[in-house]
Amino acid sequence: MPTLTARKREILKFIVSEHVQTASPVASSTVARSTSLKASPATIRNEMVALEEDGLIHRPHVSSGGVPSDRGYRHFVGSLDPEATLNSAVAAQVDQEFTAVHADVEEWVDSASEILAGLMDTLAFTTLPRTAPAPVKSVELLRLQEMLAVVIVVLQGANIYKQVINLDSSDSDSAIEHARNRLNEVIVGVPANNVAARASRVGGGLERRAFDSAVTALQKHNTGSSMEKRFSGIGKLFQQPELLADPAMSQGAMWLIEDTFATSVFEEASEPGGLASVVIGEENVEESLRNYSVVVSKYGTSSTAEGIIGVMAPTRMEYETAIPAVRHLAGHLDQMTMLFYGGY
Rank of each mutant, 00 (worst) to 15 (best):
S232Y: 02
K229G: 08
T216F: 07
M227E: 11
E286I: 12
F231S: 14
W255S: 06
A248D: 12
G203Y: 00
D212T: 11
E286A: 02
E271W: 01
R198H: 06
L237W: 04
P241K: 03
S232D: 13
S250L: 12
A197S: 11
V296P: 02
E207W: 02
G252R: 07
L289R: 06
Q219C: 02
V296N: 09
A262S: 14
G224P: 01
S232P: 09
Y299R: 10
L206Q: 00
L244V: 11
E286C: 03
N291L: 06
P241S: 03
G281C: 08
I280Q: 06
D212I: 05
G252S: 05
F231V: 12
Q219P: 01
A210H: 00
A210R: 00
L289Q: 07
V285G: 12
V285D: 10
R201M: 14
S250C: 13
L275R: 14
S297G: 10
A199N: 04
S270A: 15
A196R: 08
S264R: 08
A248E: 09
L256F: 04
F238G: 11
Q219A: 13
V265S: 11
D246R: 12
N291F: 12
F266L: 13
S302Q: 10
A196H: 05
S302K: 11
G235S: 13
K236P: 12
E268C: 08
L206E: 01
G233R: 00
E242F: 05
K298P: 07
S213E: 01
S270T: 15
H221M: 15
E283A: 12
M249N: 13
T301R: 15
V202K: 05
L218I: 08
S293F: 01
Q219R: 12
T260C: 06
V295E: 11
M227Q: 12
I257T: 03
S226F: 10
S232K: 07
G233S: 06
Q240I: 07
G273F: 04
G252E: 04
A199E: 13
Y299K: 09
Q251Y: 06
R209A: 03
S264C: 02
L206C: 04
G233I: 00
H221Q: 15
K229M: 06
S226W: 09
A262G: 11
G203I: 03
T260G: 11
S226M: 10
A245I: 01
M249C: 08
F266S: 09
G224F: 01
N193C: 03
V278N: 04
E282R: 14
G281E: 09
K229Q: 09
G233Y: 00
P247S: 14
K298V: 07
S302V: 09
L218K: 02
L275M: 09
I234A: 15
E286K: 11
E207V: 01
V215H: 05
M227Y: 05
K236G: 10
P241Q: 02
A245L: 07
V285S: 15
I280H: 08
L275P: 03
E207M: 00
V265I: 14
G204C: 05
F261M: 14
G235Q: 10
L206I: 01
E267K: 14
S270Q: 10
W255Q: 01
S293K: 09
D259F: 03
E242H: 02
M227V: 09
